[in-house]
């Protein structure tokens, strides 16, 4: 069953019933989330609506610079989202983090589209943009969690880090445990997702195709 299912606007709006449940829950339990949920819903709708039009144009483009510009906008947006989540004001982490994101996302997206999928040209927007989006989307949360944990533990364990520094450790040795914990905290959601990838794919496949049951 490979036919495309057309979803009407009415059907799409039906999904709002879950938002309504969240709104009612927030109202009953006085969670104070009604405004945030409403704003979030509106933003999601308008952004996806706008992106739908923009992507229709971009995915057809033959201009590599436009594709790379879109990629750049995606990385910058991810950086701003991370900046919003990480409450660090003293340590200037933004530029190093942005450069790391740009280089590693670019390398990963290139690897996936150019080598794994093997498309020509490598920047073909129909593949490069979704591949980049997946890489950025998945790693953005991991980065935010890792950075938040790193800065928090550095402050909480300042005396312990200083003790190691005073015993001759360099900055890497002195903060190694904190660094490991931060990376682990960031990677746990991805590892969990990989652990449960079988059942998840099965449930998706189960909905999509009857052939899976044979």
């Amino acid at each position: 069953m490979n036919s495309i299912i057309n979803i009407s606007t009415g059907q799409l709006l039906l999904a709002l019933v879950f938002i309504l449940i969240a709104q009612i829950s927030s109202f009953i339990y006085h969670l104070g989330l009604n405004r945030d949920i409403a704003v979030g819903t509106l933003r999601t709708f308008s952004q996806l609506f706008l992106m739908g039009y923009v992507l229709t144009y971009i995915l057809k483009t033959t201009n590599p610079w436009l594709v790379l510009s879109v990629f750049m906008v995606m990385v910058v947006s991810a950086m701003f989202i991370i900046k919003g989540r990480v409450k660090e004001k003293q340590i200037p982490y933004i530029i190093p983090t942005f450069l790391t994101m740009l280089v590693s996302y670019m390398a990963t997206a290139l690897f996936v589209s150019g080598l794994v999928i093997g498309i020509t040209p490598w920047w073909e927007p129909r593949y490069f943009i979704p591949a980049g989006g997946m890489v950025i989307g998945n790693s953005m949360s991991a980065l935010a969690v890792s950075l938040e944990r790193l800065f928090k533990d550095m402050r909480q364990q300042k005396e312990l880090v200083e003790m190691k520094l005073c015993l001759g450790a360099d900055y890497r040795e002195a903060s190694l445990d904190i660094f490991k914990n931060a990376v682990t905290a960031g990677m746990i959601p991805s590892i969990n997702a990989m652990m449960g990838v079988g059942p998840c794919i099965y449930s998706r496949y189960d909905v999509r195709s009857d052939s899976c049951r044979n």
Binding site: E159, L160, E162, M163, L165, C166, L167, G168, A169, D170
Partner: peptide, 16 residues
Amino acid sequence: PAKLRSFVSYVAQIPQ
């Protein structure tokens, strides 16, 4: 700093 601190050892007020 690491080399200096292998010659000069500092013990903090609250032992860690």
